[in-house]
């Protein structure tokens, strides 16, 4: 691997514009941190851990657990779907089909979520296309409840975060040099074997990057649980929104936000550390 080609000073110079661009955001982060330590709910005043203490309830604990669980499961599903999609996308010869595929993967980012939720209701709702067909075929008697519960939220999370995973993986796939694969196949390795022993290790940095972006995105989701969870799936993003607008407990929302961020960062760091550990272990073998 290529490392430390660039002197430190020059590296900082190259990073400077991006720092300036992210500065207002860091300001906002700091502001939120400060707000979470406020003694008042609606303004920044005094210094207190009250907002954090108030969050120590079973309800909030369940919400944290649910958020991490759904974000994790969604990430696994997304990765299982995104890798094949990236393979297909990079092997398509016709540029027309490549574009068509790219656009259909990007669609969930474009269409208003409210309208997408409407589409899902027409398809998977209690009287949607799927349920009425299954009923007509005599397979089910009572409708399957696929929306307004965790299944619905999971579906929505997978759908909206799929594009975030596909494109970084496509970039990583493009970077694999075909010789490796040819070598593997000339050595008589089967497709599955090549996939497991050659492709995945080569893709690893890209895969980890994609997975972490998907996990982070899903952990902070709020529109999806709002629209496809029927308000019954209390993910943290939703709890935070409720605190901000009808309850006006802004310090509480800030504290909940900080907890969400710390947890997400912890998961990201831990996963990259784990990956690093396993790769170095393999390399030394």
């Amino acid at each position: 691997m290529s490392t430390e080609f660039l002197p430190r000073k020059q590296a900082l110079l190259f990073a400077a514009p991006a720092f300036i661009a992210i500065l207002p955001f860091l300001g906002a982060c700091f502001y939120i941190l400060r707000f979470s330590l406020s003694g008042e709910q609606g303004t920044i005043e005094g210094l207190s851990f009250q907002a954090y203490r108030d969050l120590m309830t079973p309800f909030f604990g369940r919400s944290v657990w649910l958020t991490l669980k759904l974000a994790f499961v969604a990430t696994v599903i997304v990765m299982v779907l995104a890798v094949p999609l990236a393979f297909v996308l990079t092997s398509l010869r016709s540029s027309f089909f490549r574009r068509l595929l790219t656009i259909s993967i990007l669609l969930p980012l474009i269409l208003n979520l409210l309208v997408q939720a409407y589409g899902w209701i027409l398809l998977l709702g209690p009287s949607g296309v799927l349920n009425s067909s299954l009923k007509a075929l005599g397979i089910i008697e009572r409708p399957l409840f696929l929306l307004f519960n965790e299944t619905g939220v999971l579906l929505g999370l997978v759908q909206t975060s799929l594009p975030l995973a596909v494109f970084p993986i496509v970039g990583a796939v493009r970077a694999i040099s075909p010789e490796y694969l040819e070598a593997a196949s000339s050595l008589g390795a089967g497709h599955w074997r090549t996939f497991k022993d050659v492709t995945v290790p080569l893709l690893r940095p890209g895969l980890v990057g994609a997975a972490s972006i998907v996990f982070a995105f899903n952990a902070s989701a709020f529109a999806i649980p709002l629209l496809l969870g029927g308000r019954r799936v209390q993910m943290m993003g939703l709890v935070i929104r409720d605190m901000i607008s009808p309850l006006f407990n802004w310090s509480g929302a800030a504290a909940a936000g900080m907890i969400l961020i710390v947890l997400t960062l912890f998961v990201l760091v831990a996963s990259s550390w784990l990956v690093r550990l396993t790769t170095t272990a393999k390399e030394t073998h």
Partner: peptide
């Protein structure tokens, strides 16, 4: 710069620039 500098710096920066994604948008 990240691709050409050392790994620790790179991972730290990647994390920093993932932050906007982690924050709940309403907040």
């Amino acid at each position: 710069a990240l691709a050409r500098s050392n790994r620790n710096l790179r991972e730290g920066m990647e994390l920093l620039f993932t932050l906007p994604l982690v924050f709940p948008l309403v907040m």
